[in-house]
Design a protein around this nucleic acid. Structure first.
Lengths: 206, 206, 206, 206
DNA sequence: ACTAACGGGACGTCCCGTTTTT
DNA sequence: AAAAACGGGACGTCCCGTTAGT
């Protein structure tokens, strides 16, 4: 987990002015977008408006994010998650491994982008198009997690059991996230996840 | 379950010519759409083309299906599922109840619309926009299932445990469906579901 | 030739209000476009402006003309030309047949759309993109003319000699048109064509 | 004609490294472009992609070729053609003079850029935009040839007869080229041209 | 000098809702 | 009531020219 703490600022040695500007612009666009989405809704916010709010040209927005959806969906946490998962001891039950990897990641994200998590979750929940794209990404995540899990347990990558485990865990975590979001207690998210995973662990008995 | 067998065509007693024509048109549009989607892909198929293929005007398409997505997503199975769930004995473990309700439903659908299941699953998997809308519908389904489960177990409707159960089961079922689809053995879907749910039942151990 | 005189207005029996409106709109767009092209140049005239000038929405412009180029290039004279060519006596030398067919057509066009010929020629000469599309259409025309000529002379459709004849004649006619256009004596176009074809007839000697 | 054989690489006496690099880059860009055009089509190939394939920046492409079209269209054969035409004896019939000038040029080009002729012809035939620009260039060529011919025959530069001669010859040559291209016998092009010009010489009789 | 980034604008496609004919 | 046409707006792609950095 310690290694995870070094995410973006991990390799800050020497970024040319060029690079720094790029990151700034990216941030500016994303921030503007999130704000407008929150205020007006996703569909009601044209890209042009985002551009204007971010003080760039519409072309630039599309240079940074191929589609409007990507403004919300792009992130770079997947590799971190895999790494975290691989770092868990081999004899640990998969549920526990996944739990640690996911919780660490979410904690990380919450630190990195203060408050963005909520907006993002809300958006994703409300805008069908985003959910679509997200679950596309999720599928990848799922596949990747599945692969790691499979390799750790000596099974085939497309083993049904493995996939079910991953799907169940991701579904449960998502429920936990939304549950906390609904209560406005996003900071309790770890507790929620723990509880959700416990339900899974005891075989879905109520 | 027998009552379930009578789904749409269950109550044909008195349908005016009007109604029958309407249903035919609806079918024609959907069929044309599915065919074109399969041939060209979803995004590459404009609504106008569907209209032409179905031999109706674009406006008519729009009258039957508020949006293009609804052509794929609309169905009428939710109430059936709820009914089936409510019909299960109260002391049955939730996992079992859900299993019966879902399997019955899928079996029903496979009978009703021969082969459509595969196309539909494939489409949904491939087109992000559809997945978005689907999971929107899914959310409703989830909520509804959750409510029934909650009421049966005397919990609150938004109880985290209940939601986790539903989410995990739906996720697992979906994995089973895709798993069978990938192998081209869609007819084994019940076995797949059983196996997936077993993984859940034993607490996600591998 | 007399039959040719009845081109567009040939079958005006009963056009619903719908159809008439459509034709009007088409005309309005084309007229507006031609005017603006003349005033500002082709490239400097956005489609939106044409739409505004024609008092329609941009979408409508694109409904009538798939691309901006088509506003200039679309016409419906090809079938007429073929018909005219076929109507010539079989034992006539090809040069003469082509001459009559082409001259008749141009005369027709000059009558139908008074003055448009000049603008159109000018545009086509000045805007490379249009020339491209035109020569695309021209290729078709050429092929069609070639086919008729081939069939009349009992040769293969892709016979080189036939194609050379057509190409030379079309090239010569075009030169004649531009020649008259340059002198502002567009009304002498028939004389010009005659002279040009004579050069061809005598084997390109000066 | 021998002098013609030394076209671009004819005078390599002293080219600074600078110059040589420039020529190389130019070549690299053109080559990359031709390859991509062939593979994907002209319109489907963005300039950026060409730049990448040629391993230069997009700006550089733009520095070497003002527009995308120029990548295909730019060449340096016009002056050679004029020179060749001027070198013909004055009392020769224009048809013969043009024939020699053109055939020599094409032969030259075929030698210089092995196989490029075909790609180029194909591209030009298929992409309207290119045909447009080409015929723009062609117009210049035509004008230049016309001038030489006019001066040799003591006529005005814009004399209709002269222009008709040039137009007919160029048209016929083009037909011959395409004719051979269609049959995949590009090496017979001289024969084809001869035959085509003969048709012209005998006054377009079939 | 070279290149990356940006700006601005056009094009053409699509969707969905409204208005007009039939 | 069905259809055809229209309107309006968004999206995403592309091109080419300029500016700012290395």
């Amino acid at each position: 987990m310690r290694s995870m703490a070094r995410t973006t600022p991990a390799a800050p040695p020497k970024l040319g002015l060029r690079e720094r500007k790029k990151i700034q612009t990216r941030q500016a666009i994303r921030r503007a977008a999130y704000r407008l989405f929150q205020e007006q809704g996703y569909d009601a916010t044209p890209v042009d408006q985002i551009a204007e709010a971010a003080d760039v040209s519409p072309s630039t927005v599309f240079r940074y994010f191929p589609t409007k959806e990507d403004i919300v969906l792009t992130d770079e946490y997947d590799p971190l998650m895999l790494e975290a998962l691989r770092a868990r001891p081999l004899d640990e039950p998969p549920l526990t491994s996944l739990r640690h990897a996911l919780v660490g990641l979410i904690r990380q994200y919450a630190e990195d982008a203060h408050g963005e998590l909520e907006v993002r979750l809300t958006l994703i929940r409300q805008v069908p198009a985003l959910r679509g794209r997200l679950s596309e990404g999720m599928t990848q995540t799922r596949d990747m997690l599945g692969e790691v899990l499979a390799e750790r347990s000596g099974r085939a990558a497309d083993d049904l059991d493995v996939r079910v485990v991953v799907a169940a865990v991701l579904g449960a975590v998502q429920e936990a996230l939304f549950h906390c979001l609904d209560r406005g207690r996003i900071e309790d998210v770890e507790k929620g996840i723990d509880r959700a995973l416990e339900v899974l662990a005891r075989g879905l008995t109520l």
